[in-house]
Design a protein around this nucleic acid. Sequence first.
DNA 1: CTGAAAGCGCTTACAG
DNA 2: CTGAAAGCGCTTACAG
Lengths: 336, 336
Amino acid sequence: MKESRVSQATIDDVAQRARVSISTVSRVLNNRDRVHPETRERILRAMRELQYQPSAMARGLANQRTHTLGFIIPTISDPFFIEIVRGVEDAASSAGYSLLVASQAQITEHPRYTQLLNQRRVDGVVLVAIEVQRRDIEAVLQSGIPIVLIQQDIGAGIPTFIADNYGGACQMTEHLLRCGHRRIAYISGSNHTPDNGERLRGVRDTLTAHGLRLPANRIAQGNYLRGSGYEAMMQLLKQTELPDAVFAANDQMASDALIALQENGLRVPDDVAVVGFDDVPLASYVTPALTTVHQPAYELGLQAAQCVLQALEKPMNTEHVVLPTHLVVRKSCGCP
Amino acid sequence: MKESRVSQATIDDVAQRARVSISTVSRVLNNRDRVHPETRERILRAMRELQYQPSAMARGLANQRTHTLGFIIPTISDPFFIEIVRGVEDAASSAGYSLLVASQAQITEHPRYTQLLNQRRVDGVVLVAIEVQRRDIEAVLQSGIPIVLIQQDIGAGIPTFIADNYGGACQMTEHLLRCGHRRIAYISGSNHTPDNGERLRGVRDTLTAHGLRLPANRIAQGNYLRGSGYEAMMQLLKQTELPDAVFAANDQMASDALIALQENGLRVPDDVAVVGFDDVPLASYVTPALTTVHQPAYELGLQAAQCVLQALEKPMNTEHVVLPTHLVVRKSCGCP
DNA sequence: CTGAAAGCGCTTACAG
DNA sequence: CTGAAAGCGCTTACAG
């Protein structure tokens, strides 16, 4: 028993039923040229009766447009990235575009995503990247397919949308100092990622401006992921002096640091303050609720996608957009 | 200045360069028929030199296969669904398939997703659904495109993958009773969703089996979403008798209930125990850490996607798979 | 082992 | 206002 796939109506079926040529059907389909009102009616009726839906592939082949956006993201499991996804989705779908998603941890090793592009499956690309080199996307640039980057600027005239990591880190550090904290420790995200670099720079610059320092033994290495904040905090606890406050490069690590402190019988924020970065939902559910820096993740995704969508219409004027971040004060910093 | 899109090589370019017909190029592309080794070499070299990548659309049009799976999901923002996404992604990509994603809150109102299907953009569909009616997917069934459902069984011989909601709820209720709790309250998820129905039934049946009841005033209405557990808990607190334990239909609501209790000066689990369902990351970060029921979300996605992928090859033998859930005991239940 | 030709379902000049 | 024809870039019988 073969599958009894009910074959769908094609443009020929519609043309036949409406007693016109396929050219005219195509005209009403695309709303172009003049078509006699009566003819149009007849065609529309035929379409309805046959439940006609044009084949996306045939259209794509004919006019070299897929009406699909490629969306490449390191991992879909991170709540921070989820918001970006939502933004991209909203922008795409309200423009009638679909999303071809490729999540990819090791973007350099198996550039599965280049297929999306080279196989001409997508009209444009939004790439959320943490460690992209220019050569990784050389193929895309060559192909002339519009691409925009989120979260990492690799120059080369590629439009980029990033959050103000430096500014956010400065604000947070100022806040900690204002609360009276002096010995600030930093739990670092993955090294080499530009956002971590910017945040660290913000902390350092602010401390320096106040005549304070961030010595090497007060920086603990994490990797942004679950669990790494715990290990990093343990390292910090081995130091002779306890820090006044720990600034983790994201909320996940800050939350794990909370656990480490608690296990060691230290109270937050009384003994040590802890703050994070991102403002993911988790931040407000841990105890004490995390003071953190809010990132405009949804906006980042929305604007980046709108940017490629625009680039599809008219030549893209290179943009470099930095969206503001802002402080969210809750309990974990110990400030009134 | 027009965009200077470097046109990509086509099968004709390759054929010309290798001095063969496109038929033969197609043969080595698809690894079919015998091709003289030398010819093959020449063609492969030409492909390499031209950086040839076959057009997905052209292939799709010619053989009516898109090598793309449609993935429809109510919302991508829920951490529980994320895991399903990961499973579907892994299955698809390891089979060389791409994922066309449509997230859709109100699946019934604006069936944007039917376009994916009718426009023949996808070879198969994975639908994570909470409130689908048979008529919503009538079009898909008619088209003969394989579809599998996750989380909701609407019968009609459609393959379905669901977690054992009933069993999980029974286990949890047994556990609470074993801990000595007697007055159990339930914070319900969206009404009408089958998973909520199953969980509620599990609670009720287990209580009944032990000669206990779940009176209406001990069921508070929530909707699974952030904040609703808070309101529901507030309702329960208005009752004259405090429950011994509150069973929330998911971890998000349980976490919000925790906040409501805390605000009212009640201690968990000493005054009231609270448990959840899902076992999302949040569950282990709230204080006290939530006792909950683990759902095999990743597996659900993986197996469902593998199922459609199989159905693409050979006629699909209707499957109805129930994956086991299991208890995860942490602190919030107050059991030793 | 290889090629010429038809076809997949559309769009787009070009005529009329 | 409408139609015939070529073309998008492949695959697939059918010959040879």
